[in-house]
Write a protein that binds this DNA or RNA. Structure first.
Lengths: 336, 336
DNA sequence: CTGAAAGCGCTAACAT
DNA sequence: ATGTTAGCGCTTTCAG
């Protein structure tokens, strides 16, 4: 593999001249420039990003931690982060946390070994303390979709509670009073927040919270199917349902289809949605949109500001948006 | 950031000793080892993968080219490739080709700049010639899901034609004779191969090929919806349908749901499937499975063999497998 | 068993 | 406008 030395030799100039020409620093005699460019072409020379990193003490790499590569949600994140990094001519290094604190730690170790200049962390399992500790070190990072006390300036956040509340409020406005909920795993903070929003909406309309109207899933499709089954049994009077993830919604729809529950005639449905899967279901499902793409993009922008030490006043907090589709019916409000 | 020098100084030994201890090369006095390990811990030292790359002339990085990060298909590929590379303690560098030859070229340039030791290419737009040219250079690579003449030893392949043929044959065995097809974009080789299989199956049973029974999509969901609509009009006698991608199948199902076409009562359906999306649809859709995960894993194995110059006799060719689900009905075979 | 020295490919003062 | 020199953090002979 040709190195800068070979190019210099072939062009009959010094390495540093080649380096300068590559980086467009300074002014050169046009024939020197031509000779060098010719030599580079001839040797199919590409500067080694690695050697350059070492020399400049900057790797030009950014680490992105996601839980998995599969699933549209993480795909969106990677896509956006890559696009934004491309703009800044930075390399992307991805790693998976695999739903464990140790996995996430390992990912960060990898970024560190590669001397990434900054990280975008969609961390779900590192404790707030551990994250605060990490903030003591010199590598800047941004936390995507999580609020960590003391690290507010690095957090890109979304109001999960409000989102859930808006969804359920909408159901209530349509006249529904018997509203079920398929939650995520209760152990996960985001699930907790969403359940909270469900409860708040009910409370606000003086509808009592019934455990029989809740079923816990794991955000996965299969669990949505099972949760739908459970609710079908435990809450036969249910006329509307709020599902905390698009995958679970898909599973639930599968169950309802198999058991001849017609949407929206017999049951209205609204769902959390980040990757616009809800529009792909049939019937198309109304949703509250969780704008992970924009959040991911913003995360990179914020990180770049930190890297350049520039002040930037970016919106770091995102708000939900209702997207109404075919899955909701009005319910006659019962005479009291 | 602490360097090996700092560790050496703190431990009171030479850099090279530290290096040897890190890499477990040679034998050391136990107290030297202890001192060094203590110093490393104290400084939170991690060797720089970059400096190491430069010194050893091996980056330990592998490049993976995919078209996009989104979409379950590419997610699967990345997931498997990462898993396999983890086993070999290699770093993964991903890049997107964005459905253009120039995009794919740019991705490879990036790998080259990073001095990746090898590439896994899911290339769709580079010409065979360009790939053969690339093979002249010193970096080994493996081509995932494509056959390139002259590069057979580097290709991990799948029999798309046979897959399509098996799917349609199954429909025919169930008594269907009026079978539609939603194809991928005709310009893409894989689409062409699948359409070929459809035609072969028909031909083999003496069913004539009718253009009105084919609609072209772009492998995306929306296009599946539109194709279903088109076929619904142009081929009203159709009793069974073969869809060339799972996303298009999802779109088609959406259309049929909206237009009250019952599956499998009024229409039987079979689909290509790689990420097991078909089992998530309702009704669950029968499919021919395209084992992209295993192929991706195998691609890395093959690449590692090439890197280590070891002979390995891996199965490079994969075959389709039928997965029967709820979407197919028997059709009474008409009396002739 | 450990130290000394050279070098990987590049950049960045400092000269001239 | 270009050459000289040193050095980034690590590995790898070669000594001893």
């Amino acid at each position: 593999m040709a190195s800068i030395k070979d190019v210099a030799a072939l062009a009959g100039v010094h390495r540093s001249t080649v380096s300068r020409i590559i980086n467009g620093e300074g002014v050169f005699r046009s024939d020197t420039k031509r000779k060098v460019e010719q030599a580079m072409a001839e040797l199919n020379y590409r500067p080694s990003a690695i050697a350059r990193s070492l020399a400049t003490a900057s790797s030009n790499m950014t680490g992105l931690l996601v839980t998995y590569y599969t699933g549209g949600f993480f795909g969106q994140m990677m896509e956006q982060v890559q696009a934004e990094l491309d703009l800044h001519k930075k390399f992307l290094i991805t790693a998976q946390g695999h739903h464990s604190a140790e996995g996430e730690r390992e990912a960060i170790r990898r970024f560190h070994a590669l001397r990434c200049e900054g990280y975008v962390l969609n961390s779900r399992h590192l404790s707030d303390d551990e994250l605060r500790e990490l903030a003591q070190e010199s590598t800047p990072f941004v936390i995507l979709d999580r609020v960590v006390e003391g690290l507010e300036s690095r957090c890109i956040t979304f109001d999960h509670t409000l989102a859930a509340k808006m969804a359920v409020e909408h159901l209530i406005e349509q006249g529904h009073r018997h509203i079920g909920c398929i939650t995520g795993p209760i152990s996960r903070p985001s699930s907790h927040l969403r359940l909270q929003g469900y409860k708040e909406a009910l409370h606000q309309s003086a509808i009592s919270f019934e455990p029989a109207f809740c079923a816990e899933g794991d955000y996965g499709r299969k669990s949505g199917y099972l949760a739908a089954e459970q609710l079908h049994r435990s809450a036969p009077s249910m006329t509307a349902l709020f599902s905390c993830s698009e995958e679970m919604t898909q599973g639930a729809l599968q169950y309802f289809h198999e058991h001849n529950v017609k949407l929206p005639q017999q049951l209205s449905l609204i769902s959390f949605d980040s990757i616009e899967l809800c529009a792909a279901l049939y019937p198309q499902v109304s949703s509250v949109h969780f704008p992970i793409s924009q959040m991911a993009q913003t995360a990179v922008e914020l990180l770049m500001c930190q890297l350049n030490q520039t002040e930037c006043s970016i919106t770091k907090h995102f708000v939900p948006e209702l997207r109404l589709r075919q899955s909701i019916n009005k319910q006659a409000i019962p005479e009291v």
